[in-house]
Simulated scan of single mutants.
Amino acid sequence: MSIYDIPVKTIKGEQQTLAPYQGDVMLIVNTATDCGFAPQFKGLQKLHDEYADQGFSVLGFPCAQFANQEKGDDAEIAQACELNFGISFPLYSRIDVNGKDAHPLFQLLTNEARGVLGSKSIKWNFTKFLVDRDGRVVKRFGSTDEPAKIESHIRKLLEDPAKG
């Protein structure tokens, strides 16, 4: 199954797939508004704003699996992201990223891009997966990797997809 075929639910409850992003570069992130890494929202939004017109999107997937740092329902999460962080990039319904109930999207992402020492599991909030224009997962970034550090990788994929 292609990354573009996996069903996802928007933060507003609408069922869809990632097909609208086919041909774009995506940065898919598991987020949490109460996490110590939440200040990264601003850097993610900056990347989204800077490169959206070149075919780039940040996609946020809230998750409460790490110290329950995403406590609200989808409406509360959307409001917190907008009011506290000025988020306008697409957000999706809260999901699990690890374990038997891990969302199929994150099952695919973790199979394609392993973490430290080949680990599949996500260690914490704000793990980021860079996906090229062909839907291939090209790189995984950890929670401590600031969005600014990822910018050069995004630029390379936008300028020359073969360099991913």
Rank of each mutant, 00 (worst) to 15 (best):
M1G: 10
M1K: 02
M1A: 10
S2F: 15
D5Q: 14
P7S: 07
P7Q: 14
V8S: 04
K9R: 13
T17H: 07
L18G: 04
P20M: 11
Y21V: 09
G23R: 14
G23I: 09
D24Q: 11
M26F: 11
L27Q: 01
I28H: 09
I28E: 04
I28D: 03
T31V: 12
D34M: 05
C35W: 06
C35T: 12
F37V: 04
A38H: 03
Q40A: 00
Q40V: 04
K42N: 10
G43H: 04
L44S: 01
Q45P: 13
Q45R: 09
Q45T: 01
K46A: 00
H48V: 05
H48W: 03
D49W: 01
D49K: 00
E50A: 10
Y51V: 00
Y51N: 03
D53W: 14
Q54P: 03
G55L: 02
G55C: 06
F56N: 01
F56Y: 08
F56I: 09
V58S: 01
L59E: 11
G60A: 14
F61K: 14
F61M: 12
F66Y: 14
F66H: 11
Q69K: 13
K71R: 14
G72N: 07
G72Y: 11
D73P: 04
D73A: 08
D74Y: 09
A75F: 05
A75E: 08
E76L: 08
A78Q: 04
Q79G: 11
Q79A: 13
Q79F: 01
A80Y: 02
E82R: 03
E82S: 11
L83P: 08
N84F: 00
N84W: 00
I87N: 01
S88N: 11
P90I: 05
P90V: 01
L91F: 14
L91Q: 09
Y92N: 10
S93D: 09
S93H: 12
R94G: 05
I95S: 13
G99W: 15
G99S: 05
K100M: 07
K100L: 12
D101K: 15
D101L: 14
H103C: 15
H103D: 14
P104I: 06
L105Q: 12
F106C: 04
F106D: 03
Q107K: 15
L108P: 02
L108C: 02
L109G: 13
T110G: 13
R114S: 06
V116G: 10
L117F: 11
S119K: 14
S119C: 06
S121A: 11
I122G: 04
I122S: 12
K123A: 03
F126Y: 08
F126I: 05
F129G: 08
L130G: 00
D132A: 10
R133C: 15
R133V: 09
D134S: 13
R136G: 15
V138P: 05
K139C: 07
R140Y: 11
F141Y: 07
G142Y: 02
G142T: 11
S143Y: 07
T144S: 01
E146V: 05
A148S: 12
A148F: 08
A148P: 03
K149V: 14
K149P: 06
I150Q: 01
E151K: 02
E151L: 05
S152W: 08
S152M: 02
H153V: 10
I154V: 11
R155A: 08
R155W: 01
L157I: 07
L157F: 05
L158P: 05
D160T: 12
D160V: 12
P161A: 12
A162S: 15
G164R: 09
